[in-house]
Amino acid sequence: MIAETGSIELSTSPGRPRIIRTKNTIQKVKNSLKRKKRVSTRKLASELKISRSAQRILKNDLGLTSYKKRIEPLLTDTQKAKRTTFANWVRHNFSKEQSMRILFSDEKMFDLNGMYNCQNDQVWAVNHVEADKNGGVEQKQQFPQKVMVSLGISSEGATPLVILDNGTVNCQRYIDEVLPVALKYGNSVFGDDWMFQQNTAKPHIHQLSQK
């Protein structure tokens, strides 16, 4: 080959010619993606009658990766405007040193069921019965016990946990149980020069809490 062509590169693939992952099929897959962004590889393979080659075309030929949809809160235009205004206010009124003296706080509801992701937590077995024996069943209570936990975070660490386990959290409980912990932590870590940042939950923005 070197004597005849000056190269050892093959003009054609040495394997058997492709009959499924052809240029025409790859173009059809690309066109399907243009028509609709959400494409199931199983449905795509069924429509084009190309078995599992649809996944190979998407990954190997088109260089694409499958991503799951992320869940984000739906913000109104008013909320977006307020966030932009707040961000600009922080940029123009806080130095980096000052921003390190902010104590952020939030609450989170926990229940006995906990967090479970069926996509990641899988059991490998020869059949469904064997899988169930080896922990393939996740039992959940319909009305599990719940507890709310409040926590503050700063550049210096975290406040002690505040367990709010009896009833709902109103402004009075927030004032009596959460704010004293935040005040004690902030004063002990930052002295008298720091800021407490809370969100817009109703107990937080109540006039008594603000006062």
Rank of each mutant, 00 (worst) to 15 (best):
G135L: 01
G63V: 05
Q197I: 01
E4S: 07
D121I: 08
E156F: 04
E4F: 03
P14M: 06
S154K: 00
E97G: 08
Y185K: 03
N24T: 11
S150H: 09
T200Y: 06
N120A: 11
D121S: 12
I175R: 05
A81Y: 14
V137P: 03
F190K: 01
N120P: 01
D165A: 15
D192C: 06
L161Y: 15
N24S: 11
R70L: 15
V126W: 05
A158V: 12
L164R: 09
V129M: 00
T65Q: 15
V147S: 03
R56F: 09
K108E: 07
A125V: 03
S13C: 14
Y67T: 12
E9I: 11
N199S: 07
S150E: 05
D165I: 14
G114A: 05
T12P: 02
D176R: 11
N60I: 10
D61V: 03
Q172R: 13
G114L: 05
M109T: 12
Q210R: 14
L161W: 15
H92A: 11
N93M: 08
A45P: 02
M148N: 04
R83W: 12
G186Y: 00
P17D: 09
G15A: 10
K34P: 00
N88E: 14
S155P: 10
T76I: 10
K140Q: 12
F104Y: 15
Q172N: 13
F196Y: 05
T84C: 13
A125G: 05
M109Y: 12
W194S: 08
R101H: 14
A45I: 02
E156L: 07
A201W: 00
V90C: 15
S150I: 01
Q172M: 10
S99Q: 15
A54F: 00
F94R: 03
L33P: 00
S66N: 10
K37W: 07
R16L: 03
Q198M: 06
V178E: 01
K211R: 15
L44V: 12
G136C: 01
T84M: 14
N117W: 05
G6R: 04
L44S: 10
L64W: 03
Q122K: 13
L62D: 02
V29T: 04
K140E: 13
H128S: 09
E9W: 14
Q198G: 02
H206M: 07
H128N: 07
A125T: 04
A182G: 01
A54R: 00
A201K: 01
K30F: 08
R18L: 08
A201S: 03
L179S: 02
A125E: 01
S66E: 11
A182V: 06
Q119W: 13
R38F: 14
K184Y: 15
K69G: 14
Q139M: 13
E107D: 09
K43F: 06
T5C: 01
S32H: 13
